[in-house]
């Protein structure tokens, strides 16, 4: 007859086979350390996960920003192609317009004199893009109307 010693490596058997001494002092020391490590590990993993997620989000947004910039550039180009001179000229000619050949300058005697500062410089294309405030010749219109009304009142009085 031979004797066989069977060693079981199942955790419950291992625990049963060991001499188990529960030292409350050790437990009091080890448990907080374990808790701290667990908390730190959890914190690290959470942070790492958040950083990774944010990094991917930033990359995605950067890509989206690039794509939007590129799409914007394409739209700007499309606008430029639509307002290109050759196209505009063709459209204008088809609509019956012709180039200006001679400008006749006329003097308007009753035209109110304006200070130089009141006259807005011609900035048509910039205005069209909304880069400058729209010039409103309110003062001129008012003065003109006031003049016309005065004339009408004077004419009625005379009558």
């Amino acid at each position: 007859m031979s004797t066989h010693t069977i060693i079981s490596f199942r955790p419950q058997n291992v625990v049963r086979q060991l001499e188990w001494h529960f030292d409350s002092k050790v437990a009091v020391t080890v448990l907080p350390i374990l808790l701290i490590f667990t908390f730190l590990a959890w914190g690290y993993l959470t942070q790492a996960s958040a950083v990774t997620t944010t990094t991917y989000q930033i990359d995605g947004m950067r890509l989206e920003l690039d794509q939007l910039r590129n799409q914007n550039a394409e739209l700007v180009l499309e606008i430029a192609q639509l307002e290109s001179l050759s196209r505009v000229e063709n459209r204008a000619r088809n609509l019956g317009f012709a180039p200006t050949t001679q400008v006749e300058y006329i003097q308007v005697e009753t035209y109110p004199a304006l200070d130089g500062d009141d006259i807005a410089p011609y900035r048509g294309s910039e205005r069209a893009r909304g880069n400058v405030d729209t010039y409103s010749p309110q003062t001129q219109t008012d003065s003109w109307w006031v003049g016309v009304l005065d004339d009408v009142v004077a004419w009625v009085d005379k009558k």
Binding site: A73, L77, I79, A80, E83, E126, R129
Partner: peptide, 11 residues
């Protein structure tokens, strides 16, 4: 001079 586009890059 008036701001009309003459050259640009596209992707």
């Amino acid at each position: 001079g008036a701001g009309y586009l003459l050259a640009t890059d596209i992707i």
